[in-house]
Simulated scan of single mutants.
Amino acid sequence: MTVELGRYGVWGPAAQWVGRGEDAAELEALGFGALWLGGSPDGSVMTTVSALLDATEKITVATGIMNVWTTPAAEVNEGYRALAWTDRFLVGIGAGHRETVGEVYHSPYQKLVHYLDELDVPRDRLALAALGPRVLRLAAARTSVAHPYLVTPEYTARARETVGAGVLLAPEQHVVLEEDASRARELGRKALEFYLGLPNYTQNWLRHGFGEEDLVGGGSDRLVDALVAWGPVERVARRLREHHQAGADHVAVQVVGATDAQQALREIAAAIQD
């Protein structure tokens, strides 16, 4: 049985979930179906996964993602076995970036294939970070969830065509609850700054209609507006629904630039009730 994610989840850096059991329980009560522990660097994140599972009753907890270069498959297998008592744990893996792992990064597609071969985790408890069509197809063939990051609804539509109907499509969406355009784009650019230095992302944006001119100066207004849903909560909710209309099964919401992300999520939860 494929893992239950619900229509919407919450994405946040793994370190930010430490000690947030009460917040996790509130997000569950608000109707979010999954918590994504972003940038999960290695198997040590399992301690946080376990704590969040203990603090909640029905929400799924996902690593998004454990890096195949820095986390041995045996370590993931051990962590999964320790949490095999629950069907609410989703093991998300991905190849990461040469810029963050160094010279070890080579033939990432083959690395993913070999890593999946080494994993002793059921397919219905596996997610794969995927951007390009080849890895999207791998996600559809070997896992239950394809998890693209920093993408647009237009990308989601093309990704659905690529993966077909046999896999859950769970894109991540950056969100800024700010109505002033200048301030919203300033916060958006700050959130995108790191990713503009990672070719895996920039090449994906170029594949999907952006130009080199969109990648300079912190990102063009066009790029920021496409990748970061900003404005009043009703406009942000509309963007989240657009992913579903494009073929997403689940959207992982990442609030950026907020002084109180939990409050922002309360507002978003109220706005996305169908």
Rank of each mutant, 00 (worst) to 15 (best):
E99C: 09
H114M: 13
D120Y: 01
L119H: 01
G92E: 05
K58Q: 10
R98M: 11
A191D: 10
L90N: 04
P153M: 07
A146Q: 04
Y80C: 05
V121C: 01
A140I: 03
F89C: 11
V91H: 05
A139T: 02
E172H: 12
P153C: 09
P72I: 02
L169S: 04
L138C: 12
E118I: 09
G94Y: 03
F89G: 06
S182K: 09
E161H: 12
T143H: 01
V135W: 00
V145F: 09
A95P: 01
A130T: 00
F194K: 15
E186W: 05
A62P: 09
R125V: 03
L112I: 10
Y149Q: 00
Q110E: 15
G79V: 03
S107I: 12
F89W: 09
L168N: 12
L136Q: 03
A146Y: 04
E161T: 12
K190F: 15
A82I: 07
T162V: 14
G64H: 14
V175S: 12
V113W: 12
Y105E: 07
E178R: 01
V113A: 12
F89T: 10
H97S: 14
R137P: 00
H174V: 03
Y80E: 01
R137K: 10
E186G: 08
T70C: 06
P148N: 08
V151Y: 03
V176S: 00
I93C: 05
A181L: 04
G79D: 07
P72K: 03
P153S: 13
R125T: 00
T71N: 06
V135L: 04
A84Y: 10
A141S: 09
T86F: 14
Y155Q: 05
E103K: 10
L112W: 07
I59G: 05
V175H: 12
L90R: 02
V68C: 00
L168A: 07
R81A: 15
D124R: 03
R134P: 08
D117R: 09
L138G: 07
G64V: 06
K58M: 13
V104M: 08
D117K: 10
K111F: 15
R160V: 08
K111Y: 13
A146S: 06
L126G: 00
V163M: 08
A82P: 10
A73Q: 00
A159H: 08
A139H: 00
P171I: 10
R98K: 15
L169W: 01
L169D: 02
N67M: 00
A73T: 02
R134M: 08
L126M: 00
A62Q: 02
L131Q: 01
R185W: 13
V176G: 03
A130I: 00
V176Y: 02
T86N: 10
N67A: 02
A82E: 14
T156L: 02
P148G: 04
F89D: 07
I59D: 06
